[in-house]
């Protein structure tokens, strides 16, 4: 006999066909959920707007009556051209150059160390390493990326300077090395950006089609030739983008450079002296608990705004490079 005949509880009498939309809580909930989720998604836009609003009102032009913004008190020319940064002294100078100098010297040292090593590691992982080695190495790099900035700063202060820099440069070469110095900050910064460079570049390298490599080998190339003359040029845009993102991260890095390089704004290229970066100044100024409304307090926003514009510019450039040149191999 048919099973279908035995079924009764499943088929309640069908009271005609009603397809029309009618008010129900389910429908109301559907619309409500959509609205709430849209609200969540627009929160990121709101964050950006809040950042822009904050910088514009605190640094560029104040909207609150009776108060002034930073650039209403200090001219943009002074800010960019003055070679001294001394907001906390009686004779106040607001020249961003020493801070920019510190930032770029340290980020430069970090890049000189981190970019080539990161790229070489990426080439090794994508071209040479066995899958098992790569699976083992990936989590190690993730751990390296996950170590907090404070820890790197401590490492620079108690290990890199006394046990690596001083023996080499001070004892051997006779160059004075301050206890706080740009070099140690640059070294740990280099280590910090290795995971970023490595994983992003590796993605770019692995995206290069295998046929290209095989064509290289078929012409009698060694692995070195194929890696450096075929694969790396093919993945060039991705590698450049990874470099830009890493440098941008190095520029925005705060705690490590603040601990290792000290808080002495100095317009110099000597990496063995103490220097102050933009980020370190912001941390330092907040430690002194500067009261709101003073010019030192406002200078925080001016420096923050400069930093924001620089990193934003580099990120946009990185994304542009990535998108502009991506279609070549697809």
């Amino acid at each position: 006999m048919s099973l279908a005949n035995a079924v009764s509880p499943l088929t309640p009498p069908k009271t005609g066909l009603r397809l029309q939309k009618q008010f129900s809580w389910a429908r109301a909930r559907e619309a409500g959920v959509r609205a709430v989720l849209l609200g969540c998604a627009s929160l990121s836009l709101l964050t950006t707007l809040a950042i822009v609003y904050m910088f514009l009102t605190e640094a560029v032009y104040s909207v609150t009556p009776g108060t002034t913004a930073f650039f209403q008190e200090v001219s943009l020319w002074n800010f960019l051209a003055d070679t001294e940064w001394s907001p906390q002294f009686a004779d106040k100078h607001f020249g961003i150059l020493p801070l920019l100098c510190g930032t770029f010297v340290i980020a430069g040292i970090g890049s000189l160390i981190g970019l080539p090593i990161g790229l070489a590691a990426a080439i090794y992982l994508s071209e040479y390493a066995k899958p098992k080695f790569r699976r083992m190495m990936k989590p190690v790099l993730e751990v390296l990326a996950g170590i907090p900035s404070v820890v790197y700063g401590y490492f620079a202060l108690v290990f890199v300077t006394p046990y690596a820099l001083r023996p080499i440069f001070q004892s051997l070469l006779g160059i004075d090395v301050d206890i706080f110095n740009a070099m140690s900050a640059g070294v740990v910064l280099g280590v910090m950006i290795i995971p970023t460079v490595c994983s992003l570049s590796e993605d770019a390298l692995r995206a290069v089609p295998r046929g290209l490599r095989e064509a290289g080998y078929a012409l009698g190339s060694t692995k070195y030739d194929v890696s450096l003359k075929v694969v790396v040029p093919a993945a060039f845009s991705g590698i450049v983008a990874s470099f830009l993102l890493a440098i941008s991260r190095a520029i925005g890095e705060t705690m490590a450079v603040c601990i290792a390089a000290g808080q002495m704004p100095r317009l110099s290229l000597n990496p063995f002296r103490s220097m102050e970066t933009m980020t370190a100044y912001m941390v330092g100024a907040s430690l002194g608990d500067t009261p709101a409304g003073t010019i030192e307090y406002k200078s925080l926003y001016a420096v923050g705004f400069t930093l924001f514009l620089i990193t934003l510019g580099m990120n946009i450039l990185a994304n542009w490079v990535m998108n502009r040149f991506r279609e070549v191999y697809e």
């Binding site: 066909l17 397809l19 029309q20 429908r27």
Partner: peptide, 14 residues
Amino acid sequence: LEGQEIYAPDVDVV
């Protein structure tokens, strides 16, 4: 469907 337009604007797809 049974004489009702299923693409009518007031029809609930669900």
